[in-house]
Design a protein around this nucleic acid. Structure first.
Lengths: 337, 337
DNA sequence: TGTATTTGTGCAAACGTTTGTATTAAATAT
DNA sequence: ATATTTAATACAAACGTTTGCACAAATACA
C-alpha cells in the first residue's frame, strides 16, 4: 500500500501552500489560471486522489445516499437499484445498498449502518415482517430525508413512490372482457397485503363497470407460485368450473396455469385467456400478457424525490406521494381476437 | 438536521477528557470498568453515533470494499452481489457497488470513485469493451487487494474466481450423447470471448471422447438471443440439416430454438433435445436442461478471497485462481430416455 | 519510609481536507 | 511619487476521531 499523495505533497513540489492547491483543485476564482494549470498538471502527474474522508469530515456531509431493499437479487429490486444508481450518479451521489433479507432486525442494523455513514438520505422498501416504524425510528428522529417505495406502511405519513395496483388490475380485467372473456377467475395473493387487495379491487371494479356479476367463488387466494397456479387449475378442472379466463396477481402462477392448461390440451388463448402481473422477464419470452410495473422508473422517481429533498435541505412536513402508473402489456396469451 | 453528538460533548457532560471517552467506547484495557460503564451510558443517553469519516480519516482505512459489475440488474450479477454482500457483512465490511454499463470509461470512473473512497479492496468483472488493464491500472499501482470474477483478462495475472466453462460444456454434451443424441448442433457466442471458446472446446472434447466426428458446420456462432435461436433453427430446417440435438451456449437461444421447433411441430425432447447454459430462472420454469453457474457462490468466493487478502494485508505476488465447478441441471428438454 | 511499579486519565498531535483571515505584490487611482 | 485598491497567495484553525506520551494517584516492593 504505497503512501497516498496529498495536497501537501503537491504544494511542496510546487513550492506553494497547500491551501492554494486545494483552491486550485476546487477551481476557486481566487486562484490565477496559471497556477490552476500547474497544480492540475502536477496533481495528475503524481496521481493525486482526494481523500474523501477528509473532505466529508470537513464539509460535514457526504454525497452518499442509502438504499434498503428486502433482497438485492430479485428482478424487481435489482431494477429499482439500477434506477436509483442512475439518478444518484447523475447528480454526483453514491449509493450504499443494504438488504434487509425480509427481517426487521436486519432492517434496523441497516439503518444504523447508514446513519453512522452519514448518508444524506435514505430510500427503503420495508421487509414483509415490518409492521411499524420502530426499526427506522432513528431516521425519523434524525430528520434526514426519507423516501419509501413499493411497500410502505399505510398508517405512516411519509414520502412515497408506489404503484397504482388498482389501475393495473382494472386494465387487465377490462382487456380480458373486451377480448370476449366473460368468466374470469382471479388468482390473488394474501389479501392482508395491500397490493393484492388493491388488485382484487381493480378486478371487481372492472367487472362492475362492464355489468358482469362478481362471483366470490372465482377468487382463489394463494401464494402465487408456479405450483399453486398448476394446482389451482387442476382443481378448477376437477370441479368442472366453467371459466374462460384467468387473471393471476402474479406471473408465476399465470405460468403454472398455462402449463397446466396446455397439459390438458386446452388452448390458450383460444379457449382460456391467461394474464399475469409484474411483467417478469419470462412473460415476454413466453408471450404472456402481464402488467409492467416500471421498476427502474420507480427507482429513478424515488431517487429524484429524495435528492430533491436533500439538495434543498427541506425536511418539512410536506410529504410527497408519487404514483407510478403501471402498463398493461398485451401478448398472445389473451389475444383471442 | 440536529447537531451531531461528539465524544467531546460526552466528555464535557462527564467532566472528563475526550480521549478517555474514545478509549472507553473502544473498550480499551487502560480504562476502568466504572468509567466505561458511565461513558457507555451517557453515549446511549445522548444518542451518540460515531462519525465514521473522522474514524476512517484517522485510521487511514475503511471497512469497505468495492464491487464493480457490468450491470446490476442482471440475474447473474445480482446474485453475485448478493453473495459478496453476505460474506462482507459477516466480516463487518460494507460494500460499495458500481456498475460499468459495459463501458470502459465508466469502469475507469468507478475505479477512481472507489479509490478515493479508500476501499480496502476491489472485486470486479470487466466490461465487454475492456481489452486491457488500463482502466484499472490505478488499482494495480495503488496495490490494494484485487479480485476479478467471471470475466477476466487472460493475459493478466491476478486473483480470479472463474467458472470452469470447459467442464460445464463437456458435461452437457456428454449428457446429450448418453441420451442417445448423435448429431448435436452447437450455438456458440462470439468466439473472441474466452468463455464461449472454452465451452466450444468442452463440446469438442466430449465428441472426441465418445468417438463422434466433429462437424464444423454444426457450429453456429451468434449472439445467443432468443431471436437468434429462432432464426438459427429456421435456417437449419430450411437447409434440411440432419440434427437431433442443440447445445446452446446461452439459455435465451435455447429457448428460441425450442419455441421454433414447437412451431414446426417437432417434439422436444423426443425428436430433438435442447440444452442451454447459465440456468436462467426461466429454464426451471420451462424445464429446459441447463448449467448452473453458482453465481451467489461465485460472489461469496470472490469476497472471501478478497477479504483474506485485506485482513492479512498481503499484497504479495501470490495470486490465487479459484475455479467454480458448474453443475449440469438435467430437465425434460433433453430427457429422451 | 522511600522508591519502583502499576493503573487510570489528561494532553496534544495527527489524519487530509476546507475556508476565513492575514499578508504580500502588483495594479490602479490620486 | 504616494496612497489605495485589487489580485494572488500564505497562514492557521477547524472537522471528530485515534493514539503516543506525560502525568498523577494508587499500589507494590525493598
Amino acid at each position: 500500500m504505497t503512501k497516498k499523495v496529498t495536497i501537501k505533497d503537491i504544494a511542496r513540489e510546487l513550492n506553494t501552500n497547500y491551501s492554494t492547491v486545494s483552491r486550485a483543485l476546487n477551481d476557486s476564482p481566487k486562484i490565477s489560471d496559471a497556477t490552476k494549470q500547474s497544480v492540475l498538471k502536477q496533481a495528475k502527474l503524481m496521481g493525486y486522489q482526494p481523500n474523501s474522508f477528509a473532505q466529508k469530515l470537513k464539509k460535514g456531509y457526504s454525497n452518499t445516499i442509502g438504499l434498503i431493499v428486502p433482497r438485492i437479487n430479485r428482478v424487481f429490486f435489482s431494477n429499482v437499484i439500477h434506477g436509483v444508481e442512475t439518478i444518484a450518479k447523475q447528480q454526483g451521489f453514491n449509493v450504499i445498498i443494504c438488504q434487509s433479507n425480509e427481517s426487521v432486525k436486519d432492517e434496523e442494523d441497516n439503518v444504523k449502518t447508514l446513519l453512522s455513514n452519514n448518508v444524506a438520505g435514505i430510500i427503503m422498501s420495508i421487509s414483509k415482517e415490518t409492521q411499524n416504524e420502530s426499526s427506522f425510528q432513528e431516521i425519523l428522529t434524525n430528520k434526514i430525508p426519507f423516501v419509501m417505495f413499493d411497500r410502505a406502511l399505510n398508517n405512516l405519513v411519509s414520502n412515497q413512490v408506489v404503484n397504482n395496483n388498482f389501475k393495473g388490475a382494472y386494465e387487465v380485467t377490462e382487456h380480458l372482457i373486451k377480448q370476449g372473456y366473460q368468466k374470469i377467475i382471479h388468482f390473488s395473493g394474501p389479501l392482508y397485503i395491500n397490493i393484492y387487495q388493491d388488485r382484487l379491487n381493480g378486478y371487481k371494479k372492472a367487472l362492475a363497470d362492464y355489468q358482469i356479476a362478481f362471483n366470490p367463488d372465482f377468487i382463489i387466494e394463494n401464494t402465487l407460485t408456479k405450483d399453486k397456479g398448476i394446482a389451482a387449475v387442476e382443481e378448477l378442472l376437477k370441479q368442472k368450473v366453467d371459466f374462460d379466463a384467468i387473471f393471476a396477481s402474479g406471473d408465476y402462477s399465470a405460468l403454472g396455469a398455462i402449463l397446466c392448461l396446455r397439459q390438458h390440451h386446452i388452448l390458450v388463448p383460444e379457449q382460456v385467456g391467461v394474464a399475469g402481473f409484474a411483467n417478469e422477464p419470462f412473460t415476454e419470452l413466453l408471450d404472456i400478457t402481464s402488467v409492467e410495473q416500471f421498476s427502474t422508473e420507480m427507482g429513478k422517481s424515488a431517487a429524484s424525490l429524495l435528492l430533491e429533498k436533500v439538495q434543498r435541505k427541506e425536511i418539512s412536513d410536506q410529504y410527497q406521494n408519487i404514483e407510478i402508473l403501471p402498463q398493461l402489456i398485451i401478448r398472445k396469451s389473451t389475444q383471442k381476437l
